[in-house]
C-alpha cells in the first residue's frame, strides 16, 4: 500500500493544450475510486449522479459552484457520503482512519512518503 501511496503522491500531473485534467493528485484519486467502485457494481452511476448532484447543488447555493477545486471537493464529499450510505465505509470508520493519517502526516520526516502503521 505504501508504495502505491507514494506513487500517487509523486504522480506528475500532465498538462495539455486545454489545461490539466486534474489539478492535484487527490482529485485523480477520488475520481478513479468512484469510477472503479461503480464499474464493480457497488453503486450505480445514477445513484452517484444523484449524490454528487446534491453536493453540487449545496455548494452552488453557498457560492462554491465554480472551479476545479470546488468541483472535486464536491466529488470527494459525495464519495464519502455514498460509501457511508451504501454501508461500505461507515462515517466512524472514515473518521478514525483519517485521524491515523493526520497523525502519520504530522510525524513523517521531510522528504519521506507519509505512511500508516509504523
Amino acid at each position: 500500500m505504501s508504495e502505491m501511496n507514494a506513487a500517487l503522491l509523486d504522480m506528475p500531473i500532465p498538462h495539455d493544450a486545454e489545461g490539466p485534467v486534474f489539478d492535484e493528485p487527490w482529485q485523480a484519486q477520488a475520481f478513479a475510486m468512484t469510477v472503479q467502485m461503480s464499474e464493480a457494481g457497488h453503486f450505480s452511476w445514477r445513484d452517484w449522479a444523484d449524490t454528487f448532484g446534491a453536493e453540487i447543488a449545496t455548494a452552488t447555493k453557498e457560492g462554491r459552484g465554480c472551479g476545479n477545486e470546488n468541483y472535486y471537493l464536491c466529488w470527494l464529499a459525495a464519495l464519502e457520503k455514498i460509501l457511508a450510505d451504501k454501508d461500505i465505509l461507515s462515517t466512524e470508520v472514515q473518521k478514525s482512519r483519517k485521524e491515523e493519517w493526520r497523525h502519520a502526516n504530522e510525524h513523517t520526516e521531510h522528504g519521506k512518503p507519509v505512511e500508516l502503521g509504523s
Binding site: M33, L89, V93, W101
Partner: peptide, 10 residues
C-alpha cells in the same frame, strides 16, 4: 488526507 483515508480503506 480524506482521499488517502478512502483509498487505504477501500
Amino acid at each position: 488526507l480524506r482521499a488517502k483515508t478512502l483509498e487505504s480503506l477501500l
